[in-house]
Design a protein around this nucleic acid. Structure first.
Length: 496
RNA sequence: GGCGCCAUCGCCAAGUGGUAAGGCAGAGGUCUGCAAAAUCUCCAUCCCCAGUUCGAAUCUGGGUGGCGCCUCCA
């Protein structure tokens, strides 16, 4: 297995500290608001990584924290006339709800910063005793110039950073790049006792303290968004390696951003969408599928289209396309299950060459830096094999069944590792089609009655009338497919 | 200004030294009452220039064009 390590800027062989064990820490959210698509991207990406490591039989300890003490939470609490604790609890619950919808597995441990203040104080004290940090009027700062390797993760040099300082020069700091480990208490803020008086921790120290507590001084994987490389992760390295004297993390993994029409999604640009917003219009699986169709390190672009008349009517072109693709995959699976569920048995395996080869291919894709995009590409090839087999006119049903079962037994493992394509196909398809019909102002009943009408016309060989009805439906966005024993309908999206 | 990432078919997107996955769209065939779906066939030499190499989309240097970080941020 090879993974791209931000620290070296290269793909490296993945060798765990302890055989078959992985310690993995991913920076969680600051719980002051609902999660946006960027969070979805990050946690879906690391969820796939987590699941794949488990698929490879690693015993994974996955730690994902909650930052529940922070300026923004305090601000939000003050605005809403509630406490920081209430704000953070609200959004921790919202986080869990969103993650569950996106099929993101719970982490092994989900520690909260406020429950680890003493661990942080301990680490800060250690840093002070090693002269890597200093107290200044109730604040404590990390002394960047005392840590010679500062900058090694983000590939920056201290003097280069200095020349570009935009940070406000603080009287308290010896060096403008020094960052806060402990902040002196201000009125109306959560505070804890410490050797330096009442106060609260700085942001970076929580991840160092909690990761070390649960995973040890050195652990295998640390992940997060690309935007965390500097300063957050850089500072973590400095704190942790400064305090423990040992290497902090073996492999640093960072996911790429979410772009909206090519520009970074951010609050300041006003182009951000919450997960909840998207879930109003799309099945969570569509979002997950779209995210995993891109490699986790690449930027992922949401193409959107605004309604000419109504700016708030936004069409997510990328998601519509993904929804179409997902439907056609479920169509295939639905047809496949019909054959697999057939009671006939004792068929012959028609394609012994596929035995084990599907999973081997999947592993080859995923072993290369968790390339879910390539894995999904490979999957498409096998979906074609399945469709071809299903349609093959002269092949015995029992042989088809035997062969499909073999293929599916492998696909099943892939599906559960990606946490995709695990819904009931016919339920999924009717859910999507009914939703789409609804958006067009059509009801299922109307469509079914039209189909009935057409069926009787067809029975009487009145093809002219039957075609007329089909045309009429099509003009309304309903596409019909005739099968020997039934008619299936679906709604065509017109986003192209 | 410093550091870094990216540029692959009309669109989306893998590939990171051995001769271009996959999806959408498109063309033609099979199937179909006709369609649709499915399937089969076809459809790119990889931004530009120079270099290294038996061999480069892949490595090096130089351009050009995007983007990001350097301030809270997944």
């Amino acid at each position: 297995m090879r993974v791209y390590n931000t620290l070296s800027g290269k793909k490296e062989d993945f060798i765990t500290i302890e055989p078959n064990k992985v310690g993995m820490y991913v920076c969680g959210v600051t719980v002051y608001d609902y999660c946006h698509v960027g969070h979805a991207r990050a946690y879906v990406a690391f969820d796939a990584i987590y699941r794949y490591l488990k698929y490879k039989n690693y015993d994974v300890t996955y730690v994902r924290n909650f930052t529940d003490v922070d300026d923004k939470i305090i601000k939000r609490a003050n605005e809403s006339d509630s406490s920081s604790k209430e704000v953070s609890e609200t959004f921790i619950n919202a986080f869990h709800e969103d993650m569950e919808k996106l099929s993101i597995a719970s982490a092994t441990i989900e520690p909260k910063a406020t429950e680890h203040i003493s661990d942080m104080i301990e680490m800060i004290s250690e840093l002070i005793s090693k002269n890597l940090a200093y107290e200044s009027d109730g604040d404590v700062y990390f002394s960047v110039s005392e840590f010679p390797e500062y900058g090694k993760l983000s590939n920056r040099k201290l003097d280069e950073l200095m020349s570009g300082v935009r940070i406000e020069i603080s009287e308290q700091k010896k060096n403008p790049l020094d960052f806060a480990l402990w902040k002196k208490a201000k009125p109306n803020e959560p505070m804890w006792d410490s050797p330096w008086g009442k106060g609260r921790p700085g942001w970076h120290i929580e991840c160092s303290a909690m990761s070390t507590k649960y995973l040890g001084a050195t652990f295998d994987i640390h992940g997060g968004g690309k935007d965390l490389v500097f300063p957050h992760h850089e500072n973590e390295v400095a704190q942790s390696e400064g305090a423990t004297g040992q290497e902090y993390v073996k492999y640093w993994l960072h996911n790429g951003f979410v772009n909206i029409d090519g520009a970074k999604m951010s609050k300041s640009l006003g182009n951000f969408f919450t997960i909840r917003h998207l879930l109003e219009k799309y099945d969570p699986e569509v979002i997950r599928f779209f995210i995993l169709s891109n490699h986790y390190r690449s930027p992922i672009n949401f193409t959107i289209k605004k309604d000419d008349e109504n700016d708030s009517e936004i069409t997510f072109v990328s998601l519509d396309e993904t929804e179409d693709r997902l439907c056609s995959i479920y169509e295939t699976l639905s047809n496949m299950f019909e054959i697999i569920d057939n009671p006939i048995d004792d068929g012959e395996l028609l394609h012994p060459e596929y035995k084990d080869s599907i999973l081997a291919q999947f592993e080859a894709d995923m072993d290369d830096d968790f390339n879910t995009a390539a894995a999904i590409g490979t999957l498409s090839k096998y979906l074609r094999v399945i469709n071809e087999l299903i349609d093959r006119p002269k092949t015995k049903l029992k042989d088809k069944k035997r062969t499909l079962k073999e293929i599916y037994s492998q696909l099943k493992d892939i599906f559960s590792t990606l946490a995709l394509f695990e819904s009931n196909p016919s339920q999924f398809l009717s859910k999507i089609n009914e939703k789409r019909a609804n958006e067009l102002g059509l009801t299922k009943e109307y469509i079914l009655s039209k189909i009935e009408e057409r069926n009787s016309a067809k029975k009487n060989k009145n093809y002219e009338e039957a075609d007329k009805i089909r045309e009429e439906l099509l003009s309304q966005g309903v596409s019909l497919k005739d099968y020997p024993d039934r008619v299936k309908w679906s709604i065509i999206k017109k986003t192209l």
